[in-house]
Amino acid sequence: MRVLVLLFVAMLALAACAPRGVLHLVRGADEGDVRQIFVASNRVLKHDNGVQFSGRRGTRLYFSRLDVSVPPVHRDGRIERPAPEAAPDPARHFVLSGAYAFPTLADFLAGMAKAPGGAEEVFVYVHGYNTNNAEATYRLAQMAHDFDAEVPVVSFSWPSGGDPRGYVYDRDSVIHSRDALEELLVALTRHRKIYLVAHSMGSQLVMETLRQISIARNTAVLRKISGVTLISPDIDPEVFVVQAGRITPFPQPFILMTSTRDSILDLAAWIAGRPRRLGEITTADELGGLPVTVIDLSDFADPGQNGHDTAFAAPRAIEYFRNFHGLK
């Protein structure tokens, strides 16, 4: 208990002083690997340019494409950022080389169809708690680069407050965002298959949305989901079993990436008053016979890592999964 309280206090202190992700636009930057990140967001626009968003909850979806230049010096699992107040250098840092807003959903889908590999399948990433739009964008670009993505990648950027003190706000934002994610998945599956990947609290959003789609008997959408991976899912295991029981057909493969060394989920379990979260189990035995695969990443985290981002931030895990979870 003392360790968790100290961690919570440290997070509050960090919130007051730590720089957060910022999108730096350096038009024409092409020093590294440029990745097209398609963004669908129900956040409130921060600026009228249609591509930068706040942590406030909006009432409609906005669509954009952000071209992220991954620097030549990039190392697997890292997002190289400039120091606070320093100018971004495309040779050393993640930057945007271009940013484009799509006026309509139809324009968004047409733009995606023109992307390399965009005809048959897309990869949709749903970020987790305490994540702003810039962080979600750069994280997906890092994943697309490190895992050699050969299909279009889409970030569903739901309105996390981007503040470690906003756990309850983010949980409510998940409920607020179910209809928006459903709208996106329905639109995408009209023309192609989807591989869904969610991190942390984003896993709750994915499960609630798939359950909602199933209850509406929209099985055509569920049959177009070619697989689901939940990374460090911040869900009560008993809740997950109930959610999954209402999803028919249940997507396959369905993968849970977990760790017994996840200090962030330790804190979430403490807040919830329960012994552990879904992302801390080691086998599927306690999930009522659900057809899921549990991959325990406890031994993959590098020293000093919190165990919550291991699947996409630990070089050993990236090497292990390079050809694994649907990016190809």
Rank of each mutant, 00 (worst) to 15 (best):
L4T: 04
L4G: 04
V5T: 12
L6D: 13
L7S: 13
F8R: 13
F8P: 00
M11I: 04
M11W: 09
L12Q: 10
L23G: 02
H24E: 11
H24R: 09
L25V: 08
G28W: 04
A29K: 08
R35M: 12
S41M: 08
V44E: 10
V44D: 03
D48C: 07
N49G: 10
G50V: 09
L61I: 04
Y62H: 14
D67N: 11
P72T: 05
I79V: 15
R81A: 12
A86C: 06
P88A: 14
H93S: 03
A99H: 06
F102Q: 00
L105P: 02
D107Y: 02
L109C: 14
P116Q: 12
G118D: 01
E120N: 14
E121S: 15
E121C: 12
V126F: 08
G128P: 02
N130M: 07
T131W: 00
N132A: 05
T137W: 02
Y138L: 07
Q142N: 11
Q142K: 15
A144C: 08
D148S: 15
A149H: 07
V154W: 00
S155A: 15
F156K: 11
F156R: 12
S157L: 07
P159G: 04
R165Q: 09
V168Y: 10
Y169C: 09
I175M: 12
H176E: 10
S177T: 08
E183F: 14
E183M: 15
T189M: 14
T189C: 15
R192Y: 08
K193W: 12
Y195C: 07
L196M: 13
H199D: 02
M201G: 02
G202I: 03
L210K: 12
T219I: 05
A220M: 05
L222W: 13
I225L: 12
L230A: 00
S232M: 05
D236E: 10
F240W: 11
A244E: 02
G245M: 03
I247H: 11
I247V: 14
F250A: 05
Q252S: 15
L256P: 01
L256K: 07
M257Y: 01
T260C: 04
S263A: 13
I264P: 00
A268D: 01
A269P: 05
A272Q: 09
T283N: 06
E286D: 07
G289I: 11
D296H: 03
D299I: 00
D302M: 07
D302T: 01
H308E: 13
A311M: 07
A313N: 06
A313H: 01
R316P: 00
I318L: 14
E319H: 14
R322A: 14
